[in-house]
Design a binder for these strands. Structure first.
Length: 503
RNA sequence: GAGCCGCUAGCUCAGUCGGUAGAGCACCGGCCUUUUAAGCCGAGGGUCGGGGGUUCGAAUCCCCCGCGGCUCACCA
């Protein structure tokens, strides 16, 4: 506490002193067992239409408890606002009515938790208000709340001290409640369709399921290094092999990469797998699931996200990646798309730095297509759009297309210029999967960091037979961003990773 | 990892040309028994992110560092 200003220490000491006086008067400043009988929003709803005279006649008695979030004092009387989990309700305290208990009120501060019993009336301005006949101190807050009008604006403080952000900034709680409703809605949607929710390991002996750099950890008793999972994919597909034909998991993935407004090192992913389905079936399913989510959470299938208006109404565009690129880059013909040199030339028009040119020179055909897509198409996909037909080279777990084996039966869903979902018909041919793993191992040997390990047991599982299956991953945080109009992933993660403060 | 912007009282922010620190809220004291950011009077509160430099004099100009935000890169 040595880094605090003199004033904050003073406030702290003053409030400690008030807590001591509460004790003297027989009230534990950190007591327990107090049970309020009513909730703020229930009371307000029940008497919404009651006229002042009617209330005066019936004089209903209510008992509430909450944090004191506003205080307007007149010396021998005051209006305070109590906040419980449902909302705020105004309380009027008067010396005449409270008698000795008025002393308890005078020893309370903004931020304290108190319990109040009293009769409901309408104040002069018409607001439903409880006139306190009993006032019970419950918890003394030793530190002051942030400024009442502007709230807590400092972004870093908001993330580091989310508890204050939640108290001081209206709307923050709403965002997180919406996120919770989103997850519940997805669970219900999948459960209704016969999917089974499971939990698979977060600590993996191998790096698998995605192209990403992992966190490493260590198990002491076994004396082995483990990787925090970057994706649950291979475990979930083992379960399909085992007969859980529809399976899903909503859980954290960990990727040891940069942090940005769209990236947190740990993020929540929905992954689901459905036997006897194709990636095309999953486009239908995704469309249904997300348009339902949008209507339920945002109230409509059209919703505002930043400067965009997004239309989640059904009938989303489905367009092969190479076609999307040709639309965006007028000079490219269908034939050009299969000519790596032509694509390389196209990419070099915008990349001039030595390192960039060198990177382009090394790219495979599939990587060139991917790079062109990211450069010319991705950011323009505002409304939900399925991009299909990804190069097999960048889809090591996806099934080859029967007509063009160099392309995979895969799609990614883009909304507001961002990837929201990634899905494909699963590769269930163990021999092909073995080759793809070997190619990954070879890529790692060449120095590529984001590659998968060879997973022998997974091949073994496939050798026992996995039914034709399609699988999908949906980034829950990013979806929550869209549905809550949040500009940063940190606005939808309660405690995003921040650099620890020194000392 | 790179670029740009920011960091001043507990909170939200001013601070002019370089002249020695300000407001509102919060807090403390006084007045006030129907307020809605209550009001009126008074007081206290500062390592101006840290360090170094220029200068008679630095919150202000220069350099280094730290932390954060945004953009880019990597990625989902």
């Amino acid at each position: 506490m040595s880094d605090e200003g003199v004033k904050e220490q003073e406030i702290y000491a003053q409030r400690l002193e008030k807590a001591r006086k509460w004790r003297e008067l027989g009230f534990h400043p950190y007591g327990s067992g107090y049970r309020p009988l009513h909730l703020a929003s229930d009371i307000l709803a029940r008497h919404e239409k009651d006229a002042p005279e009617a209330l005066e006649k019936s004089a209903p008695v209510y008992s509430v408890a909450g944090r004191m979030v506003a205080l307007r004092s007149f010396g021998k009387a005051a209006f305070i606002k109590l906040r419980d989990r449902t909302g705020d309700i105004q309380v009027h305290v008067k010396k005449d009515t409270l008698l000795d208990a008025f002393e308890l009120f005078k020893l309370s501060d903004l931020g304290d938790f108190v319990g109040v019993v009293g009769t409901l009336f309408r104040s002069k301005t018409g607001e439903l208000t409880i006139s306190a006949t009993r006032f019970t101190p419950l918890t003394k807050a030793l530190r002051p709340l942030p400024e009442k009008w502007h709230g807590l604006a400092d972004t870093e403080a908001r993330y580091r001290q989310r508890y204050l952000d939640l108290v001081a900034n209206p709307g923050v709680k709403e965002v997180f409640l919406k996120r919770t409703r989103l997850v519940k809605l997805i669970r219900d949607f999948l459960d209704d369709r016969g999917f089974v929710e499971v939990e698979t390991p977060m600590m993996h002996p191998l790096v698998s399921g995605a192209a990403a750099r992992p966190f490493t950890t260590h198990h002491n008793a076994l004396d082995i290094d483990l990787y925090m999972r970057i994706a649950p994919e291979l475990y979930l597909k083992r379960l399909v092999v085992g007969g859980i034909e529809r399976v899903y998991e909503i859980n954290r993935n960990f990727r040891n990469e940069g942090i940005s407004t769209r990236h947190n090192p740990e993020f929540t992913m929905l992954e689901f797998y459905q036997a006897y389905a194709t990636y095309e079936d999953l486009m239908d399913l995704t469309e249904e699931m997300l348009s339902e989510a949008a209507s339920a959470l945002a109230g409509a299938t059209r919703l505002k996200y930043g400067d965009h208006e997004l239309d989640f109404g059904k009938g989303w565009k489905r367009i092969p990646m190479s076609e999307a690129i040709r639309e965006a880059v007028p000079g490219l013909s269908d034939k050009d798309m299969s000519d790596p040199d032509r694509l390389r030339h196209e990419l070099l028009r915008t990349r001039h730095a030595d390192a960039e040119v060198a990177a382009v020179q090394q790219m495979t055909h599939g990587e060139l297509v991917g790079a062109l897509f990211e450069e010319h198409v991705e950011h323009r996909l505002t409304h939900p759009t399925f991009i299909t037909r990804f190069p097999t080279a960048v889809s090591p777990l996806a099934r080859r297309n029967d007509e063009s084996p160099e392309m995979a039966d895969r799609f990614e869903l883009f909304v507001a210029g961002r990837e929201i979902a990634n899905a494909f018909s699963e590769l269930n041919d163990p021999l092909d999967q073995k080759e793809r793993f070997l190619a990954q191992v070879e890529a790692k040997r060449r120095g590529q960091e984001e590659t998968m390990d060879y997973d022998e047991d997974y091949i073994r599982a496939l050798e026992h037979g996995m039914p034709p299956t399609a699988g999908e991953g949906i980034g829950i945080d990013r979806l929550a961003m869209l549905l809550t109009d949040s500009p940063s992933i940190r606005d939808v993660i309660l405690f995003p990773l921040l650099k620890p403060l020194p000392r």
